[in-house]
């Protein structure tokens, strides 16, 4: 059995030591550019769209969706390059990535639930009508932001 026990030193798979740091800086620039785009979109929301929520409701959703996708791209590059998951073998990659797919259900189901909760309260179909009194006037006055 002793043949089967490998030490960390043997297992340790050196990534290409001759490679320079060019790739790291490239990803750093990429992450910075994505962050700057996100910030520009955020400033756009701050300066313009938030002023007229009714008018630009779809535009706001679109901008927020774009920011979510850009964040996922950032996450991909951090995990794949900085954490070197992209350099690991497929077995290890899949044992991490496949369980994370649970998030697809997790996010969809809970956001759906939150939204339905809001609709129940707004239409007074919930079990606690007194709660709607605090919520509804704000809608009439300013319009739903989300």
């Amino acid at each position: 059995m002793s043949d089967n026990v490998m030490t960390a030193a043997e297992l340790h798979m050196p990534h290409d030591t001759s490679a320079g740091t060019g790739r790291i800086w490239k990803i750093f620039r990429l992450l910075s550019v994505i962050t700057i785009i996100e910030l520009a979109l955020g400033f756009g929301l701050a300066r313009h769209w938030y002023g007229e929520p009714e008018l630009h409701h779809t535009a706001i959703l679109f901008v927020k969706g774009t920011m979510c996708i850009l964040s996922l791209a950032k996450a991909f590059y951090i995990v794949s390059v900085f954490m070197h998951l992209g350099d690991e073998i497929r077995n290890l990659m899949m044992t991490i990535v496949v369980p994370l797919c649970l998030f697809i259900w997790f996010i969809t189901a809970f956001l759906w639930d939150g939204n339905s909760w809001k609709n129940l309260k707004n239409t007074n179909a919930g079990s606690k009508p007194d709660q709607t009194e605090q919520v509804v006037p704000a809608v009439i006055e300013k319009g739903a932001k989300e």
Binding site: Y50, F110, W117, V135, V139, K145
Partner: peptide, 24 residues
């Protein structure tokens, strides 16, 4: 998953309210 659960809980609550705060 721990962080995900926190953030999803936050997002669920935000979705359930007509109003949140303006981060800007």
């Amino acid at each position: 998953f721990t962080f995900g659960a926190f953030l999803i809980s936050y997002a669920t609550l935000r979705f359930s309210l007509n109003d949140w705060v303006d981060a800007n």
